[in-house]
Design a protein around this nucleic acid. Structure first.
Length: 606
RNA sequence: GGUGAUGUAGCUCAGCUGGUUAGAGCGCGAAACUCAUAAUUUCGAGGCCACUGGUUCAAGUCCAGUCAUCACCA
């Protein structure tokens, strides 16, 4: 029986290209995990999308003097192309400016209001009479009321380090129009009454402690222990989802309140898109389904505390006619089963910085390197337990010395040998020797060991375990020496070559979640037809008020299975070639010198 | 300032509830091999496990403090 696995991935702000931090923190781990479960035959629903709203997008739009919608539209399109190229296999990657997402977010707002989880409160905020709007903290500068530094930011003083309350700044001014002095004005907002959920949240964490990462448990408990206060969920901005109440036209839902709902809204959109509008309930109303949120560590409180609190508050939605007849309230929505948050991936020892362009952008990386080479290096250095470092020396050496030398070379040398010396076929043999059977058994055991590690989201260890089997295979070859035996003992050489091809056939599957493109190549070299995984496609989804683009996955034709090889002697091989490109040592200096330099965005070729 | 994390071979990292001579991959040195994108395989060198003090028959492993880095909160 197949399990229902929901893979929910953090929603990137669509205010700039994707970079390796995104890839290492959330998207690649999620994809490896999803591909593994698909191979296992489980029912996977993997969703995410561009976060269209939020201050970072408005800031970027103001900087360039264009509308926010244009910023997010541009980067949404680039996200689709980038992720298709590197093979992040979303069932649906959409965005939050869809009719579907707006409607559901508003429904949830009203539901929470109706159930008494929201309350109204006045706040004092800085208001610009010139712009006729309240300004977020990061739009504000002024004199620090702690140290009198004249150019303190709205949230923090760069001089004395104090965190500031923007309304207390001396002579606060807008960063956009420094000549204007801002005024403090009262404004009313809705708050989510988080504190009420404290006990439920603690019980929820207790119930999952055993299989959560220690950092997520500690962080969440700590966050709750500091006391859960109500959080404002509306803002005085014009870019975002309307508050569905009369007289609230000037305000919008706070981006963090609605973005996390994307896991649910994208699932619903996916169900509609495949023509089975209720299909999302197989995960969201199935107590046996497991929902995994793949995120970076900066998002832990939102996923381990705030989103579960929203789910507690929602309780049930769109589930009329459920089993016990109590309508929408009858069945609670499923909470995340696991939140495997990754730490950060730094670059050459320094923290990512967009403003200094201390970053490695995925579209640029994909211009120059194979997707599987990028995937291999990043997966081998996943920041699963602590911050990790992307350094070009490491990239060069892991790709050349591990991926190319150990795995690529194993495939190339033996498929080439078999193709040339055995008439383009898998050689026949009469009986396997003990050492042949031993190697096959050892590699077949990998389906258990590597599988268990993938299941537990220990992806880096899963990859290194699989690579250990690659080394075992190389070791076996140097003992058996089929290139020598083919002259002295052809029978022994034939069973050795058969054995190694069968082992490669197994390794191809063990590595496929990590290296889907090259595993497909190996699959074809071995003479098989069909695609190990489904097809990714960028499609247009129509709604009443407009259309949007999304990245989708169709697994109906996929033939890959997480099971041992039954490679048949006599099977016709295809002419093999090198799997991977070996990198030139010069790239290290070239890439390093580009860090921190101004960068131009190039069009992405798909 | 508070809380938490991290600090182990040149590099990247494993070391669970304390227990024989501290592990892996890469890099380095030597040897073997030649099917392969000179790739592979074997053997070897290399570590006061951040520092100081403590608990214990026994401590990278527990406790306290110090330093460095990072995160969250104030």
């Amino acid at each position: 029986m197949s399990d229902y696995i929901h893979v929910s991935v953090a929603w990137p702000y669509a205010n700039g290209d994707l970079h390796v931090g995104h890839l290492a923190g959330a998207y690649l781990p999620a994809d490896i995990f999803a591909r593994y479960h698909r191979l296992k035959g489980n029912r996977v629903l993997m969703v995410s999308g561009s976060d269209s709203h939020g201050t970072p997008i408005s800031v970027e739009a103001d900087k360039r003097g264009i509308p926010a919608s244009q910023i997010f539209g541009r980067y949404h399109e680039r996200f689709l192309q980038t992720q298709q190229k590197i093979g992040i296999s979303y069932d649906l990657f959409t965005h939050t400016d869809t009719e579907n997402h707006h409607r559901i977010a508003q429904d949830i707002f009203l539901l929470l209001l109706e159930r008494g989880h929201l309350y109204k409160e006045s706040q004092k905020l800085l208001y610009s009479e010139f712009e006729k709007r309240f300004l977020p903290d990061r739009y504000v500068e002024g004199e620090c009321y702690v140290c009198n530094y004249p150019n303190a930011r709205g949230d923090q003083c760069d001089n004395c380090g104090s965190l500031l309350d923007a309304t207390q700044l001396i002579n606060p001014r807008s960063r956009n129009h420094p000549e204007e002095t801002l005024i403090v004005r009262e404004t009313e907002h809705y708050f989510l009454a988080l504190g009420k959920f404290t006990d439920q949240l603690l019980a929820y964490i207790d119930g999952h402690e055993a299989h959560w990462r220690a950092n997520v448990v500690r962080f969440s408990r700590n966050f709750i222990a500091e006391g859960l206060r109500g959080r404002p969920i509306t803002r005085d901005i014009d870019w975002g989802i309307r508050v569905p109440l009369d007289g609230w036209d000037e305000k919008r839902l706070y981006v963090w309140f609605e973005a996390v709902m994307g896991y649910l809204t994208a699932s619903i959109e996916w169900a509609q898109h495949i023509g089975e509008p209720d299909a999302w309930k197989r995960w969201w109303y199935n107590p046996d389904a497991r929902i995994y949120n793949f995120i970076g560590k900066d998002n832990i409180p939102f996923h381990a505390v705030i989103w579960p609190a929203e789910l507690f508050g929602i309780d049930g939605i769109y589930n009329d006619g459920s089993a016990n007849g109590n309508g929408a309230n009858a069945t609670p929505l499923q909470l995340p089963y696991d939140i495997p948050a990754n730490e950060f991936m730094n670059i050459e020892g320094q923290q990512f910085s967009k403003s200094r362009n201390w970053a490695i952008w995925l579209p640029d990386l994909l211009e120059r390197y194979q997707p599987d080479a990028i995937r291999y290096y990043v997966a081998a250095t996943f920041p699963e337990t602590r911050d990790a470092d992307f350094d070009w020396d490491g990239f060069l050496s892991r790709v050349n010395n591990e991926l190319v030398a150990a795995w690529g070379n194993l495939v190339n040398r033996m498929l080439g040998f078999a193709y040339k010396r055995y008439d383009g076929k898998v050689p026949s043999y009469t009986a396997l020797a003990d050492e042949d059977a031993a190697l096959i058994a050892q590699v077949e055991a990998g389906f258990e060991t590597v599988g268990a590690l993938l299941e537990a989201v220990k992806l880096r260890e899963a990859l290194s375990t699989a690579m250990g089997l690659v080394r075992d295979a190389n070791n076996y070859l140097s003992v058996q020496e089929p290139w020598k035996r083919i002259k002295e003992d052809p029978e022994a050489a034939a069973r050795t070559v058969y054995t190694i091809l069968r082992v490669i056939d197994n390794l191809k599957i063990l590595l496929a979640p990590f290296l889907p493109f090259s595993s497909q190549q190996v699959h074809e070299y071995l003479g098989y037809d069909g695609q190990l995984f489904g097809a990714q496609q960028i499609v247009t989804i129509d709604e009443a008020a407009g259309a949007h683009q999304a990245l989708t996955y169709d697994g109906s034709q996929a033939v890959g299975r997480w099971q041992i090889s039954a490679l048949q002697p006599g099977q016709a091989l295809r002419q093999p070639g090198p799997l991977f490109v070996k990198l030139e040592p010069e790239i290290v200096d070239q890439e390093r010198s580009a860090l921190g330099q101004p960068r131009e965005e190039q069009p992405i070729e798909v």
